[in-house]
Design a binder for these strands. Structure first.
Length: 684
DNA sequence: CGGATCGAC
DNA sequence: CTATGTCGATCCG
């Protein structure tokens, strides 16, 4: 998004201000200068919990830098020379593989959300506006930016910077519609174009350019949208000017110079079609055409970059925004010229922290990045310095890969402080419910559940747990998340856990391969007509285990719910051995599959352990896989010492991966419980 | 694997 | 009063 989140850092390095304030003000005009902006932000911010946490993070970065500098001190000239040789060998290879044959375009809608809101509400047109809420802004228009109002800034601070600021709430449905309109245009130039969010996209127009060479003019002719409500009076081309809110924006507008549109066909303009325009066949003309069509269709302007790879194209689109475009010719020297004085912060992938670290090494521009390549290869990880090298050579992807399958799905929410376990658990359940719904829309199941917590001091923690069999339903996810939450609550007891955010994520999805396999094993399992045994447990003070004989256990979850609520609310230790499975559930041993006529967990566990040990011995003596009896042990986190046993009990999942998972996650839990007797017994 | 960090939108 | 939500990548232990 064209939001100026990246703010040139330049001179004064007074820490946080640079991060939080906008120091990009063109002096003179109405608005505020850097100093004022930073002062106001600092006043609004100083002493807040947020600020304190920012300071803490800042210190951590400084320590990182310190460690790096110490490392640097130890580097000998010998090492440096050697590194230089190695890196330069790589440079030669990279140089040889440089590919300038593609034409990549990056399209970036200008101040997208704000522009949509202004379009739809003329009242806003002359005003400084931002889209978002009092707590967080998503974007602002250029007018507001002159006051230092920008994306990722809370609205209440923006208001201090610019008291007249109008804050419009987000309306994603609307932006989505507009985005779709834009995409309909883009797809004509590259059916495989890659959208990046609602307001940006990469296109590879290499093929289009070839075809276009043979196109007759008619196919390159487009008409002005006449029935639009826009006030436009004089002549052909001033439509885009209105989007230049301020009249003194430095960016070029679409038709401002005398030549561009008719580049290739200067002769025809007036007679044929009064309200039409013909675009040429060059890349620049194509992109002008795209931007023209976007504007005609949506009344919104876009900026664009043209270059031989995505990284460069993206940086180009930033060059002349808003409502401008820029091209790097497909020549090595053109690329290097472009990079020469470019601040590394402009490079996609280089953020605040990396900028600061590199600056500590005296690196600010891309050419400096290249000069220091040998040093960087000694100070940074392979992935990092190779990336730096690519950047400084101007290398990037020359084709647009379809993004692969998703790797995780999550949901999180911020709220005013919540500090009672009761509310936290019910919130957690709610998140699990929402997440489960989304997961099921995509038919996904994952093995890892991650809980994210942010306390009122803005400190973030994540806690993850990987289970044997994939989860996707509210109950399944919650069963895991609630344990993680419980552990965190316990960890601060007797103090309450004071949080301002909670999130739940599911990852570790099954690959397509695994899906099929699982499908098979499930159906064959069902055919075999066996019962599913469930076994669950919660570590910590509220140990709770039960098995039900029923495969559709706890249908509405109410049973589960009440139990949990009661237990956690009372916050006392129910003796873990008593009162299990009162209702209509029956304990079934997951190993031998027989019903156990007891309601005492302890004796039930004993039985299970015995069964498992039998299995273990058998496995080890026969030295082969455990019999493939499909015993579904979803979520079976039985708390004590079943590390090997679980593997045995669930052979259908017996891949290397799940084996490791099992022994790790269980052995950890085994410590917290005193039931490692299973293991000890075995080794006697 | 789990946890923290970075970066992008 | 009031500092987002979602995702992927990477590094380290």
């Amino acid at each position: 998004m064209d939001d100026m989140k990246k703010v040139g850092n330049s001179s004064c390095n007074d820490g946080l201000l640079l991060r939080m304030g906008l120091n990009d003000n063109k002096a003179g005009m109405q608005g505020l200068d850097k100093e004022k902006i930073n002062k106001i932000i600092m006043e609004a911010t100083k002493g807040s919990r947020f600020y304190e946490n920012e300071l803490k993070k800042d210190q951590q970065v400084n320590q990182r830098i310190e460690r790096m500098m110490q490392l640097k001190e130890k580097i000998t000239t010998q090492q440096l020379l050697k590194a230089q040789l190695q890196v330069d060998k790589l440079v030669i290879e990279l140089e040889q593989s440089r590919n300038l044959s593609n034409t990549i375009v990056h399209i970036d809608m200008d101040a997208f959300y704000a522009a949509v809101e202004m379009r739809d509400n003329p009242e806003l047109k002359e005003k400084p506006i931002a889209v978002g809420s009092m707590s967080m802004l998503s974007t602002s228009n250029y007018h507001a930016r002159r006051f230092g109002v920008r994306a990722a800034m809370p609205g209440f601070i923006a208001k201090k910077l610019c008291p007249h600021l109008t804050i419009v709430p987000l309306n994603f449905e609307k932006y989505g519609k507009v985005s779709k309109e834009v995409r309909e245009i883009l797809t004509e130039y590259d059916p495989n174009f890659m959208p990046m969010g609602l307001d940006e996209a990469y296109l590879n127009i290499t093929e289009h350019l070839e075809e276009r060479l043979n196109w007759p003019e008619d196919k390159r002719r487009f008409f002005f949208n006449t029935e639009s409500t826009i006030e436009k009076d004089k002549g052909e081309v001033n439509m885009s000017a209105k989007f230049n809110e301020d009249g003194y924006s430095s960016s070029p507008i679409l038709f401002e110079d005398n030549t561009p549109l008719m580049d290739d066909h200067p002769q025809q303009r007036d007679q044929s079609m009064e309200n039409s325009v013909v675009f040429g066949t060059s890349a620049e003309e194509v992109v002008k055409e795209i931007r023209f069509r976007i504007e005609q269709k949506t009344q919104l302007t876009a900026s664009a970059g043209i270059a031989p790879n995505t990284m460069l194209a993206k940086m180009c689109s930033d060059r002349n925004k808003p409502n401008g475009q820029y091209r790097i010719a497909p020549e090595r020297q053109a690329v290097l010229d472009f990079l020469k004085d470019l601040p590394i912060r402009k490079v996609p992938g280089i953020g605040k922290v990396t900028e600061k670290m590199l600056k500590a090494l005296g690196i600010v521009t891309c050419s400096e990045l290249y000069q220091q390549r040998a040093l960087l290869s000694l100070l940074f990880s392979e992935a990092s310095w190779r990336n730096f090298l690519d950047i400084s050579l101007g290398l990037g992807s020359t084709h647009l890969e379809k993004d692969g399958e998703r790797k995780s799905m999550s949901t999180e929410r911020t709220f005013s402080e919540i500090n009672t376990a009761e509310d936290q658990y019910s919130l957690c359940r709610e998140l699990c419910r929402d997440l489960a719904q989304e997961l099921q829309k995509e038919g996904l199941k994952g093995k890892t559940v991650t809980l994210k917590l942010k306390n009122v001091n803005f400190e973030v923690k994540t806690r993850a747990s990987t289970v044997l069999s994939s989860v996707s339903t509210e109950e399944e996810i919650f069963a895991v998340a609630k344990d993680l939450l419980g552990t965190e609550i316990d960890s601060v007891a007797p103090h309450p856990l004071r949080i301002r955010l909670m999130g739940v994520r599911v990852s570790g999805f099954l690959s397509e391969e695994e899906k099929k396999y699982q499908q098979k094993s499930i159906t064959s399992f069902l055919k075999s007509g066996k019962e599913i045994a469930f076994l669950r447990l919660q570590p910590g003070k509220s140990n709770q285990e039960y098995c039900t004989k029923n495969s559709e256990a706890s249908p509405g979850g109410s049973f589960f719910d009440k139990k949990r609520a009661a237990r956690q609310l009372n916050s006392e230790n129910l003796s873990p051995n008593e009162t299990v499975a009162k209702e209509d559930s029956v304990l079934v041993c997951p190993v031998c599959n027989s019903e156990q006529k007891t309601t005492s967990l302890m004796s039930f566990n004993r039985h299970v352990d015995v069964c498992l040990n039998k299995g273990l011995i058998q496995e080890l003596t026969e030295k082969k896989d455990f019999p493939t009896k499909t015993c579904n042990m979803e979520n079976s986190n039985r708390v004590g010492g079943l590390s090997r046993g679980q593997q045995c009990a669930n052979p259908s999942q017996g891949t290397k991966r799940s084996g490791v998972t099992t022994s790790q996650s269980v052995s950890k839990k085994a410590k917290s419980c005193n039931s490692k007797h299973t293991i000890e017994m075995f080794f006697k």
